[in-house]
Computed example of a mutant assay.
Amino acid sequence: MPVPQARFTELLADIEPSPTTKSHASGGHSGIRDHLRTQEEFKDRYISSFLSGSYARDTSIRPRTSADGQERPDVDIIIVTNFETSDHPDDVLNEVCRALEDGGDGYEVERINKRSVRVETWQADMDIVPVVQTSNGYMIPDRDNGTWKFTNPPVHTSWSAEQNKRFGGRFKPLVKLFKWWRRINPSGKRPKGFVLEVLVSLHAPTAETHYGAAFAQLLTNIDKAYGFLASLDQKPFIADPADQSNDILGKVKLAQWKDFIDKVRVYADIARRAQETDDMDEATRQWRRVFGDRFKATANPAKAASYGGFAAATPLAAGYTFPDAMAAPASKPRGFA
C-alpha cells in the first residue's frame, strides 16, 4: 500500500518558494535590469534582458535559510549587449561591474565570477550574465580561458515547458522533488540545476501519476543507466537540449559523478522499500529518509479510521509571477573574487 499522493503534493507545496520569496526575486531582478538599461555609461551597450535558470523555468525550490534567517532567492539575469566576441571577457565583465556600481542607486558587487557578476541584496542573490546574440543563440564570456562560449537559455526554458507537457504536468514537480532530495542527501556540489532536469526528462516514467512510484523509478532508472559505467570510472556524455554537441556533465568531475551515482543507488533501494511495504508507518519512515522531516507522516489505515482518514492534500502552488518592484541596492562595493 503506497503512501497517499497527498503526502507528496503537501511536500511539493512546502518546498515551493513562498510568495514573499517570489516577490523579492521579482523586485531584485527588475531593479538590476532597470539600472543597467538606464546607466549612463552602459545604456548604449544594453539591448535587452531576460531571466534564466530555475526561476525562469519554474523549477526552483525554496532557498536555503541564510545566516540572518532570510530565504533569499538565487536569480540568473541575462543582459543582451552589443559587445563583440573579439572583446576580452575580463574587459566585458569589468565593464558590467562598473556599470552596476555606478551612480547613487549603484549596487554592491559581491564578486566577478567566471562568466557573470554577482550582486547580493536583501531581496535576492543575482548573477548578471552579459551575452552577445548570434543567429541561433548567444555567446557568453568565459574569464578562465579568455574565450566566448555558445549558450541558449531560452531553448532550455521552452524545452522544460515541453517536457512538462510530455509528463502531463508532472515533470516540474518531479524535478523539484529531485532537487529537494539532493539538498537533504548531498554528495557534493555537482551535479545540480539543469543537469537534474535533464536526468528527470531522460529517466522518469512519463505515464506514472503517483509521485512516490515515479520518484522511486527515476532513481532506479538512473542507477541502471549509469551505475556500471561509474564502477568502471567512466562518466557518460549527456547532450544539452540546446546544443547536442555540448555535454551537460562537462563541469561535473568524475569523482562527483561517482558519488552522486552511489547516492542514487542507496536511495533507489530505500524508495523501492517505501513503495513495496504494506506497513504505512514503515513506508512513511523510509520516505522521510529520502525527503527529510518535511515529509508528513501518514498513519496505518486502522489508526487513521479512528480520526476520519488521511489528511487532505494541500494544493500545489501556482507558477511564478513577477510584480513590478525595485531592488534596494547596497551602498558600497566589497571587491571582486
Results as ranks from 00 to 15, higher is better:
M326A: 13
V117C: 02
E110R: 12
V117M: 08
G292Y: 03
A99R: 00
E162F: 09
D58P: 01
L199P: 00
F228V: 14
M139T: 00
P191C: 08
S135M: 10
H29I: 09
E71R: 13
L316P: 01
M126P: 00
D34F: 13
A6C: 06
T206Q: 15
E84D: 14
T298F: 15
E95L: 13
F310G: 04
T321C: 07
N82S: 14
G250N: 12
R289V: 13
S48R: 14
S18Q: 12
F215D: 05
R166K: 15
L11C: 01
F336S: 14
G250E: 09
L100P: 02
D324G: 03
R62T: 15
L196N: 03
K253G: 15
V200D: 03
D281V: 05
L36K: 03
R272F: 12
V252N: 02
A302R: 13
V109P: 00
I77S: 01
R166S: 15
V131E: 06
Y267I: 07
A327E: 02
K189I: 01
H35I: 05
K235M: 11
Y320G: 05
P236S: 03
A327G: 06
E110Q: 05
F228N: 14
I77R: 09
A225N: 02
Q244L: 13
F83C: 04
R166G: 12
G104I: 12
M1T: 08
D281E: 09
G103Q: 07
Q5V: 05
A207I: 13
Q217T: 14
E71S: 05
V3P: 00
G212A: 05
V129A: 06
Y46N: 04
I128K: 05
R273D: 12
P329S: 10
G106H: 06
N185Q: 14
T121I: 08
P2R: 08
